[in-house]
C-alpha cells in the first residue's frame, strides 16, 4: 500500500470514492507478496498493482462492483481445470485479494 499512499490521499482530498484491493494470501507461484495493493476510483483511475499485470483488468471490474454495492470480500484468481477460461495467472499460482471501499 505504501507505493499508492500518495494517490489514495489525493483522491480522498478530491472527495472521490475509492476501492482498495490488497493481496492477502498467495498459493504456489505468485508475482506479488501479501500486502501488494491496487486502488480504483469510482471514475476508473487506477494506482498500484496486485500481479504481474495478469488480473488487473478483472480487479478494476470487481472494484467498481465493490464501490457500487459497498461489499467487502475476498476474491480469488488462479488457474484450475474447471476454470480454464476464467481470469488466471500465467505463472500458475493463485492469489487471494481482499476488496473493500476505502472508507476508514
Amino acid at each position: 500500500m505504501k507505493e499508492i499512499l500518495g494517490d489514495l490521499e489525493r483522491w480522498r482530498r478530491q472527495g472521490k470514492r475509492v476501492a482498495l484491493a490488497r493481496v492477502v494470501d498467495i498459493e504456489g507461484s505468485g508475482p506479488r507478496l501479501p500486502g501488494a495493493a491496487m486502488a480504483v476510483t469510482e471514475d476508473g483511475e487506477v494506482a498500484g498493482s496486485v500481479s504481474g499485470g495478469c488480473v488487473e483488468g478483472a480487479v478494476v471490474t470487481e472494484s467498481l462492483q465493490c464501490l457500487e454495492d459497498g461489499s467487502r470480500r475476498i476474491v480469488t484468481f488462479g488457474y484450475s481445470d474447471d476454470e480454464a477460461f476464467a481470469v488466471g495467472l500465467t505463472c500458475g499460482g493463485t492469489i487471494h485479494l481482499y476488496l473493500e471501499p476505502l472508507d476508514w
Binding site: M1, R72, I74, Y98
Partner: peptide
C-alpha cells in the same frame, strides 16, 4: 484521527505500524 490518516502519517514518518483487518468469517 481516521485509521487511514494515522496509518499514512506513520508510514511517511517511517514509524513501525501494523494494520489488522477482519477479511473473512
Amino acid at each position: 484521527d481516521s485509521i487511514f490518516d494515522t496509518l499514512r502519517a506513520a508510514i511517511e514518518a517511517e514509524a513501525p505500524v501494523a494494520l489488522a483487518t477482519i477479511v473473512a468469517g
